[in-house]
């Protein structure tokens, strides 16, 4: 019985990050890749790592205003991520629609379809802002676990 708390302590150190592009212009995706991949903004200090499969993910970063065409794919992918998951909306597009707001091709804001936990506004946000958002997401994720 004593193993489970120990295991929890180890497991809460390293959330894995997954990225969903919901029709983004690629600006925020470049910033997210920058945040993870170059040593200057090393996100692995927080224990995070990008993973290639939604089934391994703990924290989801969503960029883009959720276009009509990509909606089903995004929702299907989101459901594949195991609970407990924390969702971070990166950029102004998923939060409010940004400059694409009120377009017929866009379903923003995204929290009508997917429960969002942390918002990181910006067009695109700075890598440091994304790291701050991920740090907030990790705190929420630790509470849920």
């Amino acid at each position: 019985m004593g193993l489970i708390p120990d295991f929890k302590k180890i497991a809460t150190r390293s959330p894995w990050i997954y990225r969903i592009n919901a029709g983004s212009c690629n600006g925020c995706d470049v910033e997210m890749a920058t945040t993870a991949l170059i040593p200057r903004y090393d996100i692995e200090r927080l224990g995070c790592q990008y993973c290639g499969s939604p089934k391994h993910a703990d924290i989801v970063l969503i960029s883009g205003p959720l276009t009509v065409r990509v909606k089903d794919a995004v929702l299907r992918m989101y459901e594949e991520i195991p609970d407990p998951k924390v969702t971070v909306a990166v950029g102004v597009c998923p939060i409010s629609g940004g400059i694409f707001r009120e377009s017929y091709a866009v379903l923003a804001p995204i929290d009508q379809y997917i429960p969002i936990d942390v918002n990181v506004p910006g067009c695109p946000p700075r890598p440091q802002a994304i790291i701050a958002g991920v740090a907030k997401a990790i705190e929420i994720w630790r509470e849920r676990l």
Partner: peptide
């Protein structure tokens, strides 16, 4: 000031 990240509950206070 670039640090605008917030939890979703504060969305309409920004």
């Amino acid at each position: 000031d670039w640090d605008l990240s917030h939890v979703n509950a504060d969305k309409f206070d920004m």
